[in-house]
Design a binder for these strands. Sequence first.
DNA 1: CACCAGGCAAGTA
DNA 2: TACTTGCATGGT
Length: 214
Amino acid sequence: MQKRLLNIFHTLLESFGKRNWWPGETEIEIIIGAVLTQNTSWKNVEKAINNLRNDNALNIDVLYKMDRERLAYLIKPSGFYNIKSIRLMNLINVLYDDMSGNIDDLKEIDMWIIRDKLLRINGIGRETADSIILYALNKPIFVIDAYTKRFLNNHGIHGGNKSYDELQDLFMKNLPHDTYLFNEFHALIVCLCQRFCKKVPLCKGCPLERDFMV
DNA sequence: CACCAGGCAAGTA
DNA sequence: TACTTGCATGGT
């Protein structure tokens, strides 16, 4: 399994090149994007983030003081804006009150401790927490999402009824814990699914064609 | 028109 | 534990 996963990774990297994830310049921008992209296409999330940027609101101190209604208005293009404004506020409040809004302090803490802390926040589930840890804090945790499940299922790597944590274990027990590897691998899986793994297991031109014969 | 998009929480059985 | 529903805009 270790070899197979690494083979897949290298094949995808050669086919698609580096993905340069996460799209976002600052840590807080990545964190906000992780919440806004819940069940939402990234294109709509970009519009919402641009609204925040134009309002000079990609900043924990500014967001902390902002009215929830104002935040909801700004993130409207990303959909679910009422519930997402609450979720963002819950997250910002924890970041601000618990650690003075200093992301660098957060990076000093063990990632599993951070994960538990994030998961206790109403509105932050496993995928969102792990995306924040990997892409904003640059710590080696593997993100599982709908694409990853489809990819694993299409390639017969898992049975189909596994939990999030079990699928995460599959990657983390069979790959070196390397932030760059986990970052790039997940981004490449998303890229693969968006281009080839729609519904049928194998589409024309899929770079993993040979993987099926193993 | 229908359906999907880088989820999550709350409710039900 | 496993399944359903609400949340809601924008693209195809």
